[in-house]
Design a protein around this nucleic acid. Sequence first.
DNA 1: AGTCAATGTGAACGCCATGAACATACGGCT
DNA 2: AGCCGTATGTTCATGGCGTTCACATTGACT
Lengths: 224, 224
Amino acid sequence: MNAMNIRLDVRVVNMEPGDRQRDSYHHGSLKESLVAGARELLKEKGPDNFSLSELARRVGVSTAAPYRHFESREALLGAVAAQGYEELLRRLEGVVEPGVSPVEQLKLFGIGYLAFAADHPELFQIMFNGRYSEEAGGPRGAAFAPMIHYVERAQAARLLPTAVPSYEVARFLWATAHGLTVLHLNGGFESLGIDDTPEGLNSSAWDVVLGESAAGAAGATRER
Amino acid sequence: MNAMNIRLDVRVVNMEPGDRQRDSYHHGSLKESLVAGARELLKEKGPDNFSLSELARRVGVSTAAPYRHFESREALLGAVAAQGYEELLRRLEGVVEPGVSPVEQLKLFGIGYLAFAADHPELFQIMFNGRYSEEAGGPRGAAFAPMIHYVERAQAARLLPTAVPSYEVARFLWATAHGLTVLHLNGGFESLGIDDTPEGLNSSAWDVVLGESAAGAAGATRER
DNA sequence: AGTCAATGTGAACGCCATGAACATACGGCT
DNA sequence: AGCCGTATGTTCATGGCGTTCACATTGACT
């Protein structure tokens, strides 16, 4: 009878960059504002040069205030990472197209993965710098399970090699998506004079394993 | 007549961790000691928690001394990254085996890539955090060129799909190696209950694209 | 011997992360 | 309605950091 009117008041989420004001002594939704502000600040300054003090200043509270909601600066960034994992997961869920072949679906996962990172580089860098494996575990597994599912469907349809266990193929595909994404974000392809747009990267990269070679292997073993 | 007896005195390179002493007012080889010490410190503390002051303390000079050799802390880390690129390049060169098939050679590159990162994680993280693209450009291209070469040889021998340009296949292979490596270093596979050793990762991951499917395609088209 | 440039020192500045003591106000209880 | 505990925010302080500047030392070349 007492834990009944808990309310998640998120009215500060959609604020313009200017309105850092506050009417009362208390902020009202500091925790959410901090995470949201951290994402903005990360986008502006990058993962280094991110300062908790500056964040507090922007949100309009004292530098000590964040410590009422997060144990440390790292914990704050961990919360940002957790939010990133959820959004990535939603993104990958949103890219599922029921009618499509399992191989095509796997391609869509890869493209969605890179697209997410391109849309939210600040999140991606925080998520995968190796410091927030706790926050990662759950959503990572949640994103991995469906990949295994589609790999198995593709293997059953002889569209992918069957000599390698499904989870290893899935791991491999995930690593490829991740590698393409990381190198793209870091500008690893620019210096090579190669098409570095997400479209260019995706257009043929996946054909190497999912299209061309798989089709080739399928051509040899498709019927029976 | 005046730039003739320049000497690179590197006697401090092979010092034991204890002997941070110095006989004279001048250090003698501060620049090299700083880079070497930075690598040690990075290995101990990680890329964050790396402190230029602490490095100076360890090397036995004042906190201002490094600024005689590097413009900033970032420049120092850039030098570390540059050293890492050279070592990675040497490692990949060392993994070339003349008699082997081009596909096998490409596998060796991938395995060497991951092995290098596993041996020098502190270097790898510094190299690929996206901040030192300048230092990266040269060696990156230097490592990329031979990959293209072997891809072309493999394509000529019908061991890899030919519908995709060689540089795109090479880029894809590199991304795969990089993705496997990054996820391995960040513990991305641990939470999935998957074999996360370098051997386990390499054993079958490469077979997906280079072994299984390529062999399958080759089986269909190898002779003529 | 003398001088210049390279290299190292010490002190100082401002920023940062974090902790402690104190202030405010919201929400449940009477 | 009024009280009060606790969540939330503030102020002040501490220690570390990166960086700069004026000064000290020294090796190299004339």
